[in-house]
Amino acid sequence: MTAARPKAGASGFDQFFSSRAPEGLRVKTGIVELDEMLRGGFMPGDAVMLAGSAGSGKTTLGLQYLVNGVKQGEPGIYVTFEELPDQIYRDAKNFGWDLRKMEEEGNFRVICTSPSLMLESGDGSLLDDVLKEVQPRRLVIDSLSHLEMFVKKDDMRMEAYRIVSYLKTRGISSILLWESPQISGGSYSVTDVGLSFLVDCIVALKPVEIESAMRKALVILKMRGSDHDKRLREFEITPTGVKIESAFTNYEGIISGSPRKIASEKFMDLFRGASEKRK
């Protein structure tokens, strides 16, 4: 169930109230296991940070969130700062998502612009027109870290706060992608500019090396106002999008970058090894 959409040309006042989802409803990602981890989905109107290193699956997950939203009757907008964004249409098609068709149907928009213009539009005019036209319930910015190139480190928080506030006052449930610097290693930080406190939820994607193979881990680090699954879950990018697998129950130290089997698993390995030798 979604809130009634305001009529075209409705005042900001009307849009503000009509875009709010009734309390208690969640914004489902459409990925069953992830919605379970979120105890039903994201909270309506929340700003979610999706952090991960390059190639970790952020764009795929962000697009899947929007595509699934359109299927549930919730229009979406994808904002990108890529130089040649037409690749996004091609990559989405590989997952079976026809973004151009969704745009023709009026439920979706890909907005491609420069980070400097996003920062320059102090009154929000860059997105105002498309927000009025599409009336989105969901929006993804890919990625907030692009803005870092155009602002001083100290101003980054202020600019991020401005963007988050702009989206929240319009009742839009947003996912802000953030490229984390660490690919592997002992230390792990979501952002190096202190943005974690600005957002309501943080989902982190981390590549991990286990037994000489690269695997992908997803964890919910923070979720205001709701319980959530605290476990690290493995995920894969399949031909139909992101699929969440089971938790890494047999390993510890994954976030620290030094995964190792837990003691009971080591014991079982020894037992199996000894049993094999006797045969």
């Binding site: 745009e103 612009t113 420069s114």
Partner: peptide
């Protein structure tokens, strides 16, 4: 046509 949602300055369009 490939990027119907493109919004940019003339400088930005030229670069693309």
């Amino acid at each position: 046509h490939r990027n119907p949602g493109l919004i940019d300055t003339v400088d930005g369009v030229a670069r693309r």
